[in-house]
């Protein structure tokens, strides 16, 4: 127990140090003494940082980690010009608040299910951003978006905007690759392995299953599907891709809110 007031002085020393730090760091930065020059937000948020921590959004932004998740989006396979989604319904089942609605496509003639969603809705006013849909999707067809700038005016009919339909949800796989590079890389490897396996299997019994192998490669990853997947009906009669909708899935993937 020291003199009365020493405790307060000690505490004030801490605040004084914080105060000086805010200038010392900037000075160091200006004189370029620190050597390595990271972008300012990164530098301010590193565990070694001292002094100012403010990130001046919207002028500068913290880099988002790849795992970051906000609302989900559907991946559109630009190579095959097709949805990756097969409407197997697993995402709708694992969704904790049940915010995913899927209408499965039916073949107009045979009435059998076709592995493609006819309608796909995500109610973002219910979605809890948990990431289960992306985690449990066996086809890598639904992913968590990084775009968090989603504010709306009521004049824009919030429910029409916030309940997103298939056209609004669909984004190209190039966008997915740009925000999830590691995940995308893993997908490509998986796909290559799958193809190789398919090829080997196809060669082994080329005659009997030639047609089937072609159908299988149209939906990569279908081999790992759950029994519920209507992969059997993957015939040539595929409906048109979602571009027919009035809102095309633009390449930048910016579901702009404005």
């Amino acid at each position: 127990m020291g003199l009365l007031g020493t405790g307060i002085l000690k505490g004030l020393g801490v605040t004084l140090r914080h105060f000086i730090d805010t200038y010392a760091e900037d000075l160091k930065y200006i004189l370029n003494k620190s050597g390595v020059q990271q972008p300012r937000p990164l530098r301010r948020q590193s565990p070694k940082a001292r002094g100012l921590v403010t990130v001046e959004y919207p002028r500068e932004r913290l880099p988002l980690p790849e795992n970051f998740r906000y609302v989900p989006f559907l991946v559109y396979d630009t190579e095959k010009q097709d949805d990756k989604c097969t409407s197997c319904g697993i995402c709708a089942k694992v969704c904790p608040p049940q915010c995913i609605w899927i209408v499965r496509t039916e073949d107009p003639v045979t009435k059998r299910p076709v592995p493609q969603p006819k309608e796909f809705y995500i109610d973002t006013t219910i979605c809890m951003n948990c990431g289960y849909c992306a985690e449990f999707c066996p086809f890598d067809a639904i992913k968590m978006d990084h775009d968090y700038e989603l504010s709306y005016y009521p004049h824009q009919e919030p429910h029409a905007r916030l309940v997103q339909d298939k056209a609004e949800l669909t984004k190209p796989d190039t966008y997915h690759a740009s925000i999830h590079p590691t995940d995308w890389h893993r997908e490509l490897e998986d796909r290559a392995a799958e193809e190789a396996k398919k090829k080997a299997a196809a060669e082994a019994k080329a005659k009997a299953d030639a047609a089937k192998a072609a159908g299988g490669s149209a939906a990569p990853g279908a081999a790992g599907a759950k029994p519920a997947t209507p992969a059997a009906a993957a015939t040539t009669s595929k409906p048109a891709p979602p571009k027919a909708e009035d809102k095309p899935a633009d390449a930048a993937g910016e579901a702009s809110d404005q």
Binding site: P58, R61, C127, L150, S151, Y152, Y153, P154, P158, L162
Partner: peptide
């Protein structure tokens, strides 16, 4: 006046 999506929205949002 303004709705924000997200659960929870990031501070930037």
């Amino acid at each position: 006046d303004v709705y924000i999506t997200g659960c929870p929205p990031r501070p930037e949002a």
